[in-house]
Amino acid sequence: MTNSGDVTQLLEAARSGSAEAVNQLLPLVYDELRRIASDYLSHERSDHTLQPTALVHEAYLRLVNQRTAGWSDRAQFFGVAAKAMRRILVDRARMHKAEKRGGGAVKASLDEAVASFEERALDLVALDEALERLAQIDERKARVVELRFFGGLTAPEAAKVLDCPLRTVERDWTMAKAWLRAEITQT
């Protein structure tokens, strides 16, 4: 397991503005998320569908030393984890699509997670692409969606990560959802 000291230190560095630290965190968190997901595939653990946000929270519990981490560290962590989770899910969804075409779908917990999005008629790949376009127009709104949807943060938490008023996050969220919905329906 990754040393929680490393992560906590990196979070500290990230909090004091080191972009380098954020770049180092992302792969750590990404790996841990994938590792947790694969744990659930082993026979010791049940492999019912995981909520992606549950994975993110579990990664937090595992990676961050909660005795020393403060609130800002937590916000910072979820900011990074949201990015990692988005990447993982979207990659999975892409693979899923490819496998469907190939016909040899292998069931895995993350695939089930992806499938549960599909059941709700949510195309993660399309969402990802739309988010990219949104980021071109309005970076912050895309970040709000990333944090809330992929990172499982509440609006006040997202406000903390983005360091902007709660009201702004709420308005961004409403607008971004509407825009993405319209965008995805269209395509």
Binding site: F149, K177, A182
Partner: peptide
């Protein structure tokens, strides 16, 4: 209007779990 339509359809769209789809 496109946004408004999106908004009206967005109810069960990408809500985060704590307050949303679950």
């Amino acid at each position: 209007e496109r946004l408004l339509a999106g908004h009206e359809n967005a109810a069960c769209f990408i809500e985060p779990p704590a307050e949303g789809f679950l």
